[in-house]
């Protein structure tokens, strides 16, 4: 039986649906990310699990216990906020021990747990400092320790890294994953950053307009997006209009140029059908055993480790990402350009 279960959860704000028909089952110790643009309902769903919002309908259970309408202070769910939300009047140690103090735990136990948590987040010597004396990254680590100190059944993180600079963000997300795996705690992580979601999660829930678009492992989400939204939202994607030549054989045409795809698809409207391919799956030059498309170079953009080439093919702009190797010969704008890709690198959406 799943540990955390959301069944047919709906949330309406003055008749406007914020979350619709949300169903999810998480196993104990699983790390799940809610990924989507602003306003897609991911934070609302998280807040319903925390108890800060009540669902309009549906059920939320943790370890088989119905918590749908249980107040937040009775749920034993730890929460980490984007703005850290450390209590400014308390020291780091007092912040971490606050949950235990609120539940009436003995002082000796609180002291021991606080020390454990400070060690866990590698801030053992900063217990006496106030939050205002810490950096953003340190404050968020304290917030994480505070949420974990009460030994919650589920840990919820609401965009915890978005207020931090890029370097600290990468460091801290590795630390969050390390701690989560060390403690084996079921975790839900809300983010709009696909890199965070893909690098941290066991499974990713992609959301749009209050609904789940796709649930899957990071690899599934990236390599086989089930909807155009997921394909567009997670990573870069080229979507080219096609017409079907031979459906069972997977043969289609982009303009007048044939393309073979190994993944077949059932469709009702051919005009809505698109050939999907990631920019990094494209290679320069001609290959006999692959699909080949010819176009004209529109732009060449230098992005550091990669170079992004935009090629106009049959009236469609196609992005191609190449590793920036020293031997790489970059084409000139306006030059005729041929690119190739494997039959299993593309699919129909």
């Amino acid at each position: 039986m799943s540990f955390l279960k959301l069944t047919n959860v709906y949330k309406l704000f003055t008749e406007i649906p914020a979350v619709e028909d949300f169903n999810l089952e998480a196993e104990q110790g699983e790390f799940i990310s809610f990924l989507g643009p602003s306003g897609c309902g991911k934070t609302t769903t998280l807040r319903m699990v925390a108890g800060f919002e009540m669902p309009s309908s549906g059920q939320i259970t943790i370890s088989g216990k119905d918590l749908t309408y249980v107040p937040p202070n009775k749920r034993n769910v730890g929460m980490v906020f984007q703005s850290y939300a450390l209590f400014p009047n308390m020291t780091v140690a007092e912040n971490i021990g606050y949950g235990l103090k609120a539940s009436g735990k003995p002082k000796a136990e609180i002291k021991q747990r606080v020390e454990e948590m400070l060690e866990l987040i590698h801030l053992g010597n900063l217990g006496a400092r106030f939050p205002s004396q810490l950096s953003g990254g340190q404050q968020q680590r304290v917030a994480l320790a505070r949420a974990l100190a009460i030994r919650p059944q589920v840990l919820l993180l609401d965009e915890p890294l978005s207020a931090l600079d890029a370097k600290i963000r990468v460091e801290l997300r590795q630390e969050i994953r390390r701690i989560q795996q060390q403690l084996g705690i079921t975790t839900i992580y809300v983010t709009h950053d696909q890199e965070e979601a893909l690098s941290l999660s066991d499974r990713v829930v992609v959301m749009s307009q209050g609904r789940i678009e796709q649930v899957g492992t990071p690899a599934e989400i990236y390599t086989t997006p089930s909807t155009e939204f997921v394909a567009r939202f997670v990573g870069q994607i080229n979507l080219l209009p096609i017409h079907v030549v031979d459906q069972p054989a997977g043969l289609v045409k982009v303009g007048q140029q044939p393309v073979r795809t190994s993944r077949s698809v059932n469709y009702s409207d051919e005009k809505a059908l698109r050939l999907a391919i990631r920019p990094e799956e494209l290679n320069p030059g001609h290959r006999e055993d692959a699909n080949n498309l010819t176009g004209v170079v529109e732009t060449v953009t230098y992005l550091g480790s990669i170079v992004r080439i935009r090629v106009l093919i049959e009236g469609n702009s196609v992005l191609m990402d190449l590793f920036n190797e020293r031997r790489l010969r970059l084409p000139a704008v306006g030059e005729s350009f041929e690119l190739n890709f494997d039959t299993d690198a593309c699919w129909l959406l």
């Binding site: 108890g51 937040p72 209590f87 009047n89 606050y98 949950g99 609120a102 009460i150």
Partner: peptide, 21 residues
Amino acid sequence: RTLTEAAQSLGSNWFQVLFDV
């Protein structure tokens, strides 16, 4: 709001939220 929610998620009741935070 966030401080209140943080205190609640740590198990505080309304009285504790008001007087501790």
